[in-house]
């Protein structure tokens, strides 16, 4: 009787762990755009150990392990332009849904134009302050 019970309990625990492992999935949309080359990856599921992979193709033929450990999030940055695919699994469980990230950095021309504008505003502000504090008596 006791051995039957322990067998049933064992099967139940195994089934639960499989169910929990299969429940690992990314939080949020499965297609995301990262215009600055960084992305926050969060996933749900209960396990002591997660395995996060990145690939440049949707079939995950060439993968890179991004993280192995107990955390349920990872921040990825410094990505070049292109498509990136991510998947995560718990312990020996099934892989999660695939998260596709599209990296398309902003226009360099826009960045340089805005920087030029910023330099102009900063320079003129400095000139007004320095000239003002030199030429204006404290109270006149």
């Amino acid at each position: 009787m006791v051995s039957k019970l322990s067998l049933a309990l064992g099967i139940y625990c195994w089934a639960m762990s499989v169910v929990q492992a299969q429940e690992v999935e990314f939080v949020g949309e499965s297609l995301q755009v990262a215009p600055s080359g960084y992305i926050q990856l969060d996933w749900s599921g209960e396990a002591e150990f997660f395995w996060l992979e990145q690939a440049k193709d949707s079939l995950f033929e060439e993968t890179k392990v991004i993280y192995r450990g107990p955390d349920k999030a990872s921040f990825v940055s410094g990505l070049l332009d292109g498509q990136y695919y991510y998947r995560v699994k718990a312990n020996e469980g099934e892989w999660s849904n695939v998260l596709q990230v599209q990296v398309q950095h902003q226009s360099l021309n826009l960045a340089l134009t805005l920087s030029g504008l910023g330099l102009l505003v900063f320079s003129l502000t400095s000139v007004v302050i320095i000239k003002g504090s030199r030429s204006t008596p404290s109270t006149s």
Partner: peptide
């Protein structure tokens, strides 16, 4: 993280004067 060492990363270039003026 190759883009972090790229001197022409657009968002990073924009952030320099943005942050300076924000601080001001």
């Amino acid at each position: 993280k190759p883009m972090l060492l790229n001197a022409l990363m657009p968002a990073a270039i924009m952030s320099v004067f943005n942050n300076l003026l924000f601080g001001l």
